[in-house]
Design a protein around this nucleic acid. Structure first.
Lengths: 359, 359
DNA sequence: AATTCCGGTGGGAGCGCTCTCACGCTGTTC
DNA sequence: GAACAGCGTGAGAGCGCTCCCACCGGAATT
């Protein structure tokens, strides 16, 4: 077992930065008082506080985080765990949004975000060791299908953890934020039935991802409410190509379909390909819906009606929930579910396709 | 001046993790020997090494990074600085690629990536303080137009730093990796002239970004080599809407243009809009090129011919260069420039538009 | 007038680690 | 056989910080 840095970093800081002792000396107080002044100023006279403040500026004092962390056993950093083996997934704007949101939540804090990506099982072990090693005060796990094992392992360490996206395994205490995928799926069913489509099908996501399962459940519920039959369901892997293949089969078996709900915009793109390849039009012959309100939904040759979800808010919430749980350990906050909203575009307009050509 | 954590984290680790002392006791050696065994095993007898190794496994020992860092003055973490005020930019897949690449470079290392985003000037100051504070061993700065001030400030701290994308201000020692934007611009000119277009124009990026300036320089050089006039140049801000507006003006003033090079794929999308709004077709009337090989280049209604660049490799290189410079301070490595490549798609095909409808 | 209280203060210990240094102990050399 | 390497080892100091505790003096209470 190798616990040492495989490649260590050798770097001596330029000139030695001033220590707390230097600061205290410059301010004419004791090290203790200087420390108190720096950490919120409890039990410090205004005079002493002012003297320390002045010295901080004069010396350009910056507390040594390692020393502080050594004694407080707090690191002022949290980890964002991305348990994805695939570079492709990292390309998903989803992550950018998540990172942005968390950073936003951390703004008024001096907490730093440490990025942990584990592509392989080997990495996973290392990452887990890192988290367990108390190098961070908490973690946010972006939950895709792999998250289950993480959830359990992390729960066992007692490290404050928030999941973004409901983890698959919920047999123990786990805090998460998520969007209302069930509601989103239902919204899709309501919209497509609302514009008069009656022979509806869906290209669902993988059956081992909670988001996909939930969207499908909502979709079915929505159809039932509208008094429509469940209709055909095919699964794909959230990729454009995968959805195109699935849709080809779907269309071949059910040539009379007049509405399709794809569980992601990227998949909707693939479905659109298949529809056009079958010589049909969107929305003329088949109304098409996506999910996510991804950038491509707007730029697609026929802009996609889709479901949008407040991802940034969700990420911000995850960040602030984590901070809360770190400050008050044991206070397991309730999961927060964000509602979704329909975004109408041409792909479900009743009028025939009017792609491009808009002054 | 507030140097204190505005909101501090209070978290006590579960049960106390074993210390080096515990480890030494368990292994039957001194703390010193245990330390040596853990750090590479110099001057440690095989017997002692084995005993320590066994104890590490038995106790689940994980060295305390804070303590180590306190004495070594190394942190085993590097910062990725994203000096972008705008969330939109964060959405750029560019960042995902950069992060992926750096992570890749750090794989066999226990170096962690700390993410530093500074949206406001206020944040910039904090970020700079953080970097200066010796919390990281080095930094990678993703250079967009703001990078100038960063470059100078960081250079002054002596912190090992690598820029991704040539910084604007090069009046001092700075190490960077970049792609050959000049070559890419030239490639665009060669391709458009090569397919017989003669009345060429370009929608360039902002004049305060090196990437934009370089692409434009290459474009002009390429036109000159082909014996063509420089042609009209308009600038836009790398956004779709901005480029659309710029292109409308361009087309109004020069209705006879038969080829346009947009300095990014997103801008090319805007240009395409403007072309279609003017009642013309791509590539029938006007051949259109983008840059970046962004995902939208492929999904656009008329897929875009574009310039691709090895971004992942570039990011990996940045990471490994930083590690090198950290290990051997003062060894300012030479800048590395990656070459670009043309990707042909329909937007410059000689045949008339065949958008969609491909079995 | 004697007591308690409490805001403000400084001294000291110690967080877990690395690193210098001095001490054996086995080989090698003259 | 005396002198010297040099390897493996352990004791000890100390990195910069926080926190506990004891202390002091003036205000509030008896």
């Amino acid at each position: 077992m190798n616990t040492s840095p495989p490649r260590s970093l050798r770097h001596a800081a330029g000139r030695p930065s001033p220590t707390l002792e230097d600061l205290a000396l410059a301010a004419g107080v004791s090290r203790s008082t200087a420390s108190r002044a720096i950490n919120g100023g409890d039990r410090v006279s205004p005079a002493a506080q002012a003297a320390v403040d002045r010295a901080v500026v004069a010396l350009g004092y910056i507390p040594n985080r390692a020393a502080r962390s050594l004694v407080t056993r707090r690191t002022s950093s949290i980890a964002l765990v991305i348990p994805e083996p695939d570079v492709r997934v990292m390309m998903d704007p989803f992550f950018a949004v998540v990172i942005t949101g968390i950073t936003e939540a951390l703004r008024e804090t001096d907490v730093q975000l440490v990025l942990l990506m584990s592509r392989t099982d080997d990495d996973s072990a290392r990452t887990l060791r890192y988290l367990r090693g108390g190098h961070v005060d908490g973690a946010i796990v972006v939950s895709h299908h792999e998250a289950d094992s993480w959830a359990r392992s992390l729960a066992e360490t007692g490290l404050p953890t928030i999941f973004i996206g409901r983890p698959w395994d919920m047999t123990f205490d786990v805090t998460y934020v998520d969007t209302d995928n069930v509601g989103g799926g239902k919204l899709a069913a309501q919209h497509l039935s609302g514009i008069g489509r009656r022979r509806l099908a869906t290209v669902a996501g993988p059956a081992d991802m909670t988001a996909a399962v939930d969207r499908l459940r909502g979709w079915k519920a929505g159809l039932a409410e509208a008094g429509l039959p469940e209709g055909p369901v095919v699964h794909a892997d959230f990729t454009t190509d995968g959805a195109a293949a699935a849709a080809r089969l779907l269309l071949a078996e059910h040539p009379d379909i007049d509405g399709i709900f794809a569980a992601s915009d990227l998949m909707a793109l693939g479905v659109m390909e298949a529809i056009q390849a079958a010589g049909k039009t969107v929305p003329g012959d088949i109304a098409l819906m996506g999910y996510d309100n991804h950038a491509v939904a707007e730029t697609a040759s026929t802009p996609l009606t889709t479901i949008t979800q407040p991802m940034v808010e969700m990420a911000v919430k995850a960040g602030s929930m984590l901070l809360e749980e770190i400050e008050a350990p044991g206070s397991h906050p309730e999961p927060v579910i964000y509602s979704t909203r329909l975004v109408e575009r041409e792909s479900t307009s009743v009028a025939p396709t009017a792609s491009a050509a808009n002054a």
